[in-house]
């Protein structure tokens, strides 16, 4: 189990187990993420990386264990001295702290880039349309898509869609941002423009970022810490230089050499 890294972690997974029927996807996985930390999650396909993010986004329910944000249980609430499954109000309150970008963007196709970015702020945060639009335009400018604000997703390239999706997530002012293989559905030539947007995001927007990625070079360059997941457990976690330069686990070593060979 990785040692605690801050007095109050921003995100804590405490012996989290996720099963689908007999299939154990996460096996008593524990992991802490410090405020403002940029974490890269790497590991073989099917090892449970996406599941970690989906549990954090409350898209799935934990089978066992506790996830907490700022020390508060995410999907549980105190009841009669113990913990009971959280009700809707609790979930909605906790979700305000978390945002997510998906592999396939999941933009709303019937809305323009700008409308995608103001929907949540207006409908959920209760922002005025003027304010939401001003902030969304700032974010679209930040991702380099000011002039595409009026376009529907069908008219955007994959890289542009993913940048809109990042702007849309940021528009909700999350404290924790989850990025699930945001470049793996993209053509190689547009991956760089999306990575460029992610670089420095945690500092600029005061975010804690958990990024699942296969871009090892990028992970090494920008992460504070890299977590290697193997068969639903944290096999190894550490500074990028250590994980990529001198992994202690044989499995990490094997995975990295296989990935580097594949290019």
């Amino acid at each position: 189990m990785p040692e605690p890294i801050a007095a109050q972690p921003k995100v804590r997974l405490d012996r989290v187990t996720k099963r689908y029927g007999d299939l154990v996807v996460l096996d008593q996985l524990s992991m802490d993420v410090a405020p403002n930390e940029m974490i890269s999650i790497i590991g073989p396909s099917g090892s449970g990386k996406t599941t970690i993010l989906r549990l954090l986004m409350t898209l799935e329910q934990v089978t066992d264990g506790i996830i907490s944000i700022d020390g508060e249980p995410l999907t549980h609430m105190p009841k009669n001295g113990g913990l009971a499954p959280a009700n809707r109000a609790h979930l909605r309150r906790m979700r305000t702290k978390i945002g997510m970008c998906f592999q396939h963007f999941n933009l709303f196709p019937h809305m323009t880039a700008l409308q995608n970015c103001i929907e949540g702020p207006i409908q959920v945060l209760g922002m005025s349309k003027v304010e939401a639009t001003a902030r969304a335009m700032d974010l679209l400018a930040m991702v380099g898509l000011e002039e595409k604000a009026g376009e529907h997703p069908v008219r955007l390239s994959g890289g542009q869609k993913q940048r809109v999706a990042i702007a849309r997530a940021l528009a909700m002012r999350p404290e924790v941002l989850l990025l699930d293989e945001v470049t793996s559905a993209l053509d190689p030539e547009v991956i760089g423009e999306v990575l460029q947007v992610i670089r420095g995001l945690n500092k600029k927007y005061d975010l804690t970022i958990l990024m699942v990625t296969h871009q090892m070079g990028f992970a090494k360059e920008i992460s504070d810490r890299v977590v290697f997941i193997y068969e639903g457990k944290v096999e190894e976690a550490g500074a990028p230089d250590q994980i990529f330069g001198d992994p202690t686990s044989e499995r990490t070593r094997q995975f990295l050499s296989a990935v580097l060979e594949a290019g």
């Binding site: 986004m57 979700r95 945002g99 999941n106 709303f108 929907e119 949540g120 409908q123 959920v124 849309r168």
Partner: peptide, 26 residues
């Protein structure tokens, strides 16, 4: 697609808004 529902959850939209602003128009 299921991803549309998931995007609504990620944006914290409530059930009614999810239906009437995102799902029904599609």
């Amino acid at each position: 697609p299921r991803g549309q529902w998931e995007a609504c959850t990620a944006l914290n939209l409530g059930t009614a808004r999810t239906y009437f602003r995102i799902i029904v128009p599609q």
